[in-house]
Simulated assay, not measured.
Amino acid sequence: MGTIVAFENISLDGVTQDPTAEEGVSRDDWRAGLGPADREAWYKMITDDALGAQAVLLGRRSYEYFAARYPSRTGALADRLNSLPKFVVSTALADPDWTNSTVLAGDVVDSVAALKRTVPGEMRVYASTRLMHTLVEHDLVDELRLVVFPLVMGVGERLFGRTSNHKQMRLVDVRTVGDSLTHLTYQRVRGAERPAE
């Protein structure tokens, strides 16, 4: 049985959208305010995280973002992402061209649940906020790894959408990354739901 681990860069007010300032929501790349040592520590942390994954699960927009950049890149992170099996949730993408990519057809919840039964080890969800809303709502996320950037966005899509039920998480690790970032790890507590009101 596989597990789904979501790894997200997040602002203090919960925004995950546009950390690279390419969508026009952010004025600056979130890393612009970090010193060189912080950026290096952040990159190492992300690379180490990818090295621990056995597959990647992405929404279509995030898939297209990564697929437009990583096939031409080199280095440990690019090599790992390029070699991993990648599963993309999309009704619009028919023929993915990034190496080892598969489109999950049909119902998202059923497809991802089946994937968890067939892919051993950890599947990473990167930068896929809309997909995360669905996965959290249907209790398909086993662990959250959040890198908190020291900024308040005020606008943009947030990691958590409205849920029909209380979702209990347990904090299992906190660490500082460089001098400015905080890495939080939460695991899902099963069987702790409260009835919807």
Score class of each variant (00 low, 15 high):
Met153Asp: 00
Asp28Val: 12
Pro36Gly: 01
Gly35Glu: 06
Asn82Asp: 11
Val109Gln: 02
Leu104Ala: 08
Ala67Gly: 07
Thr182Leu: 15
Leu140Asp: 05
Glu157Ile: 11
Val136Leu: 14
Asp97Cys: 04
Leu181Trp: 01
Leu93Gln: 03
Leu131Cys: 06
Val174His: 14
Ser90Phe: 13
Lys44Cys: 05
Asp139Thr: 08
Ala67Thr: 07
Val25Ala: 14
Leu84Glu: 14
Pro36Thr: 04
Arg31His: 10
Glu193Ile: 02
Val125Gln: 04
Leu12Asn: 10
Tyr126Ser: 03
Val125His: 07
Val15His: 03
Arg130Gln: 13
Asn165Asp: 07
Arg80Ser: 03
Ser111Tyr: 08
Met123Val: 13
Ala53Met: 13
Tyr126Trp: 13
Arg188Ser: 09
Leu171Thr: 09
Val152Leu: 15
Gly178Tyr: 10
Glu22His: 13
Gly33Leu: 02
Val136Gly: 00
Arg194Lys: 15
Asp107Leu: 03
Arg31Tyr: 02
Arg124Trp: 13
Met45Leu: 14
Ser164Thr: 13
Asp179Leu: 05
Leu131Glu: 05
Asp97Leu: 09
Met132Gln: 06
Arg175Lys: 12
Val56Cys: 05
Ala6Asp: 04
Asp107Ser: 02
Phe160Asn: 01
Met169Ile: 09
Val147Asn: 11
Val189Lys: 02
Glu40His: 13
Phe66Tyr: 10
Leu12Gly: 06
Ser180Trp: 05
Ala92Ser: 15
Pro36Cys: 03
Glu143His: 06
Arg117Gln: 13
Val177Arg: 04
Val152Asp: 01
Met132Tyr: 02
Gly121Trp: 09
Thr74Gln: 14
Gln54Tyr: 00
Ile4Val: 15
Val141Thr: 07
Val136Arg: 02
Ala113Trp: 04
Arg39Glu: 01
Pro195Leu: 15
Val155Phe: 05
Asp139Gly: 07
Val25Glu: 11
Gln187Pro: 07
Tyr63Gly: 01
Met1His: 10
Leu57Asp: 01
